[in-house]
Design a protein around this nucleic acid. Structure first.
Length: 857
RNA sequence: GGGCCCGUAGCUCAGUCGGUCAGAGCACCUCGUUUACACCGAGGGGGUCAGCGGUUCGAGCCCGCUCGGGCCCA
């Protein structure tokens, strides 16, 4: 116990109690003697280490913490680890720019490597090539600093994380786990490689998955091209005339009256003069342009569908760099066509379009002027050039996109999870039902978890991609670009009869989808732990990553264990600025969370976050953070009210006074309702109930019994003090998950041990089992009447009253008589008369003459 | 084009099972410097529950349509 201060304050509580909790191991996860049922496990989102934490993080992580604290107080051993996502593009870029290096996977590891710069790399520095392993080590070094800052912020916010349970997505452990899971997917046929048209970012020169796409409205131009058909010129509108050399067919809708006679015939492309079939397909839109579309390999995903379903040849023209390939497709045979293609070779899409439009115009194979339009174009979410589609060999993981049975199992899994709020399940279901293909997990980047395979090289020197060489599990993690498969020598790398390593890495989600496994010691790392924590109780996360993180985690769990990775998922909303815009760095409306915590205090900030229900967006005006101020006021009130109660002298005794009993009975209801709300993950409701009662407790009950607690007879005092202390002890515990600092401070004045491991209150903690009678509400109402009478008379609330008449309906009259003495005391009423009436009201009030009022002071 | 969420006081939001639900806080106005609290307290005014129609004895709540806002997918 610590001494009760004369004037309690919120300042400094964060530092004081964080250090104390760390020292005492208050939030330490101790598995001794635990079973799965006694543990509450949380699959915490690992924030991106190289990013910065913003108020949205503070918001949603507070939602998680309140549940962790509630479960801990209910007696569960809480497994609440924290991860850092330091694997991925943001980290890759930051490390490149910080140290002035870039990965070259062909380089050997250098154990004594020193980077050319250390945070002072000039903007346009020539980046020094380093091996992947060296790059990973630099990443680990740099992100350690970020992670320390993050941890500090989380500690200031009061997250009850066990800081000895942290993991990093680029660590050796994470790479090994990620590779192990991939190899198991491969073994079971859930992962496979395939040569297929792939969405491709030409800037990053990497394949992109469906989950990473976004549509952006872009200006475009419609050109009308003239093909040659059996009945002469055939008009075809296109926004991508430059793909004409890649044209493999033209299509119209099977019901389109205009083209019935042409289905099954062939047409010739303008200028390149290639013969292509005129086919029917239901995806052709009759109302778009002339209703005929040219099919090119590949302009968009519809081309891919046509190509696949109509069994068309591939005539690719765009290379990995986004430029036209050097050689024309073999179908172009005319001298004019060949010559024209030679002009396009090596050009960017943009330049090729200009050149081809000019050539078409010169040949008079266009009609009218180009029409400017705006249309949605697919982009990589981190990219700034439209995606192209190129055919490449990639690795995929099955996800139900091409398998109805698997899709149904995923939907079933989703139905087995309790979603908070429930309607978020629909977003998951929409995503699963909308999947267009399997999950492309290979990335042509350098930093990340390598795909752990090698390929045999034939005696002819050709790589046999179908002859995959796997590491043995004890080797993990491996980097195939430097490690050597069993049975080979390093010298055989790339040699005939030898091997080559896969250079691609995995999509970051291929690692992030394993956060339960990473945190829980899956895969032989710590089997005992895994059995204790999996499946996890809770996955908290943002609504924006249901289609990525939540979905991919569910998928991996389905493959590994056949069931959902968690029992509950709690989805937090966005933070919006006062204009209802989502806060983001690019809009410049981001508030730094640490500054906010320092200015207003953690309890106030938490109150703001916890006033919002799950799944609901919250607004925050950084200039005027009303809710934070209200939370701060509540925390301050807690300090003052508790101090007032605890400093009353006298021993608590039997709860004998009717109003004391009724106050506790009301509190009993609050306990039940708040507990039920938290059990259904409705922290906002629990807070609202508790807070409302707390203010009534302070403003009305406390005022009413104050006099008796100080100067009443022994029985009256003992009853008041007993009721006050019981109530405060309960209220503090109800508020502890929301206001961990203020409540711990107060608790420490009169209790040993932390409030955060004290038992969650129940009705049986109360020194009375009586039901509510309506006395406390009646007293509140009477009190408001008395106060209003004084207010109307423009008198101070302290003004003595010589005589007051209070009318009440018979039901309340009997109750009020039980509290008449206390009411008279708080109103300073010399003679309080209770009479029957229709409504509870003050009939008359006689204030003492001014002189007497002065005398009171 | 399809799906989901939202629309309640000037603002931010609650409203559980259809029946004391027209609510809270903030803001505003008035009063008060009280031995827990001026980082304060007390009191007060303020709403056509987006609109229209339906179900019902009864609708903020259930159903349909319309309007407006947001998000996701195509």
């Amino acid at each position: 116990m610590s001494a009760m201060p004369e004037k309690p304050a919120l300042e400094g509580l964060e530092t004081k109690w964080d250090a104390h909790w760390e020292q005492e191991g208050t939030y330490r996860f101790d598995r001794t003697g635990q079973s799965r049922d006694t543990i509450y496990s949380i699959d915490t989102p690992p924030p991106t280490a190289s990013g910065s934490l913003h108020v949205g993080h503070v918001f949603s992580y507070s939602h998680t913490d309140v549940i962790a604290r509630f479960q801990r107080m209910r007696g569960r051993t809480v497994f609440y680890p924290m991860g850092w996502d330091d694997n991925g593009l943001p980290t890759e870029r930051r490390v490149q720019n910080y140290y002035g290096v870039r990965v070259d996977p062909s380089l050997p590891y250098d154990a004594d490597y020193t980077p050319p710069f250390d945070g002072d790399a000039p903007a346009k520095a020539q980046q020094q090539p380093v091996s992947r392993q060296n790059f990973i080590e630099l990443c680990e070094r740099l992100t350690e600093e970020d992670e320390r800052k993050f941890e500090e912020l989380w500690r200031t916010l009061g997250l009850s994380v066990d800081w000895s349970q942290t993991y990093r997505t680029i660590s050796s452990h994470a790479r090994a786990t990620s590779q192990r899971a991939f190899l198991r997917n491969l073994e079971r046929g859930e992962a496979y490689q395939s040569d297929a048209p792939t969405l491709w970012d030409v800037t990053f020169r990497s394949a992109v998955a469906q989950a990473e796409l976004e549509d952006r409205e872009q200006p475009g131009t419609f050109h009308t091209l003239l093909f040659t058909s059996g009945d002469g010129d055939l008009r075809i509108d296109t926004t991508r005339p430059e793909l004409l050399p890649a044209c493999v067919a033209v299509v119209a809708h099977p019901d389109d009256e205009r083209y019935q006679h042409l289905f099954g015939s062939t047409v010739r492309t303008p200028v390149f003069d290639v013969e292509v079939p005129f086919l029917a397909h239901h995806l052709a839109q009759p109302d778009k342009g002339t209703g005929v579309a040219m099919v090119c390999t590949f302009g968009d995903m519809t081309d891919v569908i046509w190509w696949r379903e109509l069994d068309l040849p591939a005539r690719p023209v765009i290379g990995f760099d986004g430029r036209f390939l050097p050689d024309a497709p073999a179908a172009i045979t005319s001298p004019e066509g060949t010559a024209l293609y030679a002009e396009l070779a090596g050009k960017t899409v943009f330049s090729a379009k200009e050149a081809l439009v000019a050539a078409l115009a010169a040949a008079e194979r266009t009609v009218g002027e180009p029409r400017r339009i705006t249309h949605p174009v697919k982009f990589y979410e981190k990219g700034d050039k439209p995606l192209e589609i190129v055919t490449t060999r990639q690795w995929y993981v099955r996800n139900g996109g091409r398998d109805a049975e698997l899709r149904e199992r995923l939907l079933e899994l989703g139905r087995g999870i309790e979603w908070h709020p429930d309607h978020m399940r629909v977003r998951y279901e929409n995503w699963v039902q909308g999947l267009a293909g399997d999950w492309l997990i290979s990335r042509q980047r350098f930093f990340g978890v390598p795909i752990p395979v090698w390929y045999r090289v034939g005696e002819d020197g050709e790589t046999r991609f179908d002859d995959v060489l796997l590491p043995n599990p004890s080797q993990l993690p491996v980097d195939p670009s430097t490690d050597v498969p069993d049975g080979f020598e390093a010298s055989q790398r790339g040699a005939a009869g030898g091997f080559v390593g896969e250079v691609d890495i995995m999509d970051t989600w291929a690692t992030s989808s394993l956060t339960p496994q990473l945190a829980g010691g899956w895969g032989g790392v710590d089997d005992e732990l895994w059995d204790l924590v999996a499946p996890f109780d809770l996955r908290p996360q943002g609504q924006d990553i249901i289609r990525t993180w939540l979905f991919s985690t569910a998928l991996r769990a389905l493959f590994e264990g056949g069931k959902a990775p968690w029992r509950h998922t709690a989805i937090s909303g966005w933070i919006l600025d006062p204009d209802r815009k989502k806060m983001s760095k690019s809009k410049g409306n981001v508030v730094t969370p640490l500054g906010m915590l320092e200015e207003h205090g953690a309890d106030g900030v938490r109150y703001w976050a916890l006033s919002s229900r799950l799944g609901v967006d919250a607004t925050l005006d950084p200039q005027n953070p009303k809710m934070i101020k209200i939370g701060r006021r509540l925390a301050m009130k807690v300090l003052n009210a508790a101090r007032f109660v605890y400093q009353m002298e006298g021993e608590p005794g039997e709860i004998a006074n009717p109003i004391d009993i009724d106050m506790l009975a009301e509190l009993g209801q609050v306990i039940d309702q708040a507990t039920a709300a938290l059990e259904r993950y409705d922290h906002a409701r629990a807070l609202e109930l508790t807070e409302t009662f707390f203010w009534t407790f302070c403003d009305d009950y406390l005022e009413v019994v104050k006099q008796r607690a100080y100067q009443g007879d022994e029985i009256g005092r003992a009853s008041a003090i007993g009721a006050l202390r019981s109530a405060i002890d309960v209220l503090l515990r109800l508020l502890a998950p929301v206001l961990p600092f203020a409540t711990e401070e107060v608790w420490s004045w009169t209790h040993e041990g932390s409030i955060h491991v004290a038992p969650w209150p129940t009705r049986s903690d109360l020194p009375t089992s009586a039901g509510t009678t309506g006395l406390l509400p009646a007293v509140s109402e009477a009190l408001i009447g008395i106060r209003r009478a004084k207010s109307d008379a423009k008198a101070s609330q302290r003004t003595p009253v010589t005589h007051a008449v209070l009318a009440a309906p018979s039901t309340q009259l009997g109750l009020l008589e039980q509290a008449a003495r206390d009411l008279a005391d708080v109103g300073r009423i010399e003679r309080l008369e209770l009479v029957a009436g229709d409504a509870l009201e003050v009939r008359s009030i006689e204030l003492a003459p001014e002189g007497d009022a002065q005398a009171q002071r």
